[in-house]
């Protein structure tokens, strides 16, 4: 592939206790590209994406084998601080999860925990991230309102803005539109296409049309295995594995 790999998974196996959730995954997340991960429920796609910012280690009794690197450095190396990885690799979750604070405080939080203390810089970055997340013009008059008053779609864009504010290099989207209506979904998809100019993006989705619309590369997971990984166009027009073809044409899943 001509694109530059920002993150690299090599021979990754992952276990929840005795359950073998991921089996020998090799996958590159390319810089300034959108990589989609598709597959039926329980195939391990969320598990995989949550390894990329070390979120899975919050779950007890899990075992990881293999290597995941960011800019060539193993993110699970004992010398690496998971907090540092999570700052560089941001995440937007399936269900919008704004903090029960004001819109402003939601975004300022990430900056504050990362040591930004100047009020002026915080204010600038809050506005900038809200603009980047295409939310600014909708909420600019009520930035001190509680974030929970926003609609589901707005909350999700707020979560994206919150993630952008800490200036990560990679953004992981874990089924970001699963609980949103079609109009909000469309806005998030447009946003993802905008964001790939500046960020490296990985998105887990149930929705194959969504993967086809937003991504450059697509990986198809089935029962913990990566069945096929290729340019999105190939996956959806000329997949090389029969199982991929069956899935993308809607024959199962």
């Amino acid at each position: 592939m001509p694109d530059n790999a920002k993150m690299k998974a090599e021979k990754v196996d992952f276990f929840y206790g005795p359950r073998h959730a991921l089996k020998g995954i090799d996958l590159d997340i390319c810089e300034n590209r959108v990589t989609a991960i598709i597959g039926p429920s329980g195939c391990g796609k969320s598990t995989f994406i949550r390894l990329l910012n070390r979120m899975n280690e919050l779950i007890p009794n899990t075992i990881l084998k293999g290597k995941i690197s960011l800019d060539g450095r193993d993110i699970f190396d004992p010398s690496v601080d998971p907090v540092e990885i999570r700052r560089r690799v941001g995440m937007v979750f399936q269900k919008p999860n704004p903090f029960p604070k004001s819109i402003f405080e939601n975004i300022a939080y990430g900056l504050k925990v990362n040591g930004v203390s100047s009020r002026k810089i915080i204010e600038e970055r809050v506005v900038k991230s809200l603009q980047e997340a295409a939310l600014w013009h909708e909420i600019k008059d009520r930035i001190n309102d509680n974030a929970l008053k926003l609609s589901g779609g707005q909350q999700q864009r707020l979560c994206i803005a919150r993630c952008l504010a800490v200036e990560p290099e990679v953004i992981l989207f874990d089924e970001p539109c699963a609980s949103l209506d079609p109009v909000s979904t469309q806005k998030i998809e447009e946003l993802i296409l905008q964001l790939k100019k500046d960020y490296t993006i990985a998105i887990v989705t149930h929705n194959m049309q969504q993967a086809a619309r937003v991504s450059d590369y697509t990986g198809f997971f089935l029962l913990g295995e990566l069945i096929e990984f290729d340019r999105t166009q190939r996956i959806f027009t000329a997949p090389s594995d029969k199982r991929t073809e069956d899935y993308v044409t809607g024959r199962f899943g």
């Binding site: 979750f93 990430g110 925990v113």
Partner: peptide
């Protein structure tokens, strides 16, 4: 989900 949101932003 709130704990995850905070940790994902690089909070300890």
């Amino acid at each position: 989900s709130l704990r995850e949101a905070s940790l994902a932003l690089g909070a300890s």
